[in-house]
Amino acid sequence: MTRATGKSIIKAIGTQRLVIIGVLIVLFAFFSIASESFRRYTTLITMSSYMYYIMLMSIGVTFPLLTGGVDLSIGTGVICYSIVGSFIIRQMGMPIGVAMLVTIGMGVAIGFFNGVIVAKLELPPFITTLCSMMIVRGLGSILTGGMSGVWPMAGQDGSWFRDLFKVTIDGTIYPVGMVLIIILVTVMSIVLNHTRVGRYILAIGSNKEALKLSGVNAARWHIMAYVFSGFFAGLAAIAYAGTFSNITPGTGAGLELDAIGGAIIGGTAMTGGSGSIIGTFLGVCLISLLKTGLPYIGLQANWQQIITGAIIITAVTIDMARNRKQRAG
């Protein structure tokens, strides 16, 4: 009886996700043993701050990946959107609520732009989003006149948005952003698995022709995948602004790889059709843990880039091997 329940639990969580959870625990234990300073509470705070924006981007990019595409524009996009948001507050004197809406709105607009080009003009997603990656990279500084972005600091008007992610009470920092993340992970899981848009996005990645033959307007839902990605890049831009006080225009290239890496480690197939938001969540946890933990055991920060690269190549190699095996069997 217990064994049967155990098995069904394993099946419900999924083998790959269990492996990630295992790896997470082992790594966490390893870092804690290897480094005394890792064991501090502040490490968790550092890790969570980094995790917020990668997590949000990663949740978003899961959708284009599920259609068999990709969105490379989110990395430079995050920077662009948050710089524009800061411009709205600083130069135009708008309330922060408006800035947040504009930030997210820009993300949605770029996502829509990508989606239309991919779904209607049928350009390869990677080249389309590469182009929009370049475009948003320049767009941020053009729109704001090349100034770096600064969102309200603690104590200033509108600094409440930082409380969305971190609350300091009596000198102790609480990573309340995790609550937000967990809510979003739950909501997006439901969207993916229990709504039509999620269903059709999965179907596009699985067999777009079959979906079209079933009389579904596939292009419309295909665009939605990129809109999701852009929307979450907008959210990530706010999280980014909440983490860093100064945002330099023209940066951000490479962030998208961490996000894509998180999704792929979490079991989202590069070829589309299968994947989960929970998996993405766990994948980002793993990447964040590695990136925060490794410096504690003496690896320079620059190793992080190499690690990202290695993780992605490994994850995609595994994904490809699995795919080929499935096709052969």
Binding site: R196, L202, N207, A210, S214, G215, V216, S274
Partner: peptide, 20 residues
């Protein structure tokens, strides 16, 4: 066969006319 391998059987049968 025109099927979407990643979706379940029921999801395939009712694709495009899901009960909501």
């Amino acid at each position: 066969l025109n099927m979407m391998g990643h979706l379940t059987v029921a999801q395939n049968i009712f694709i495009g006319r899901e009960h909501t």
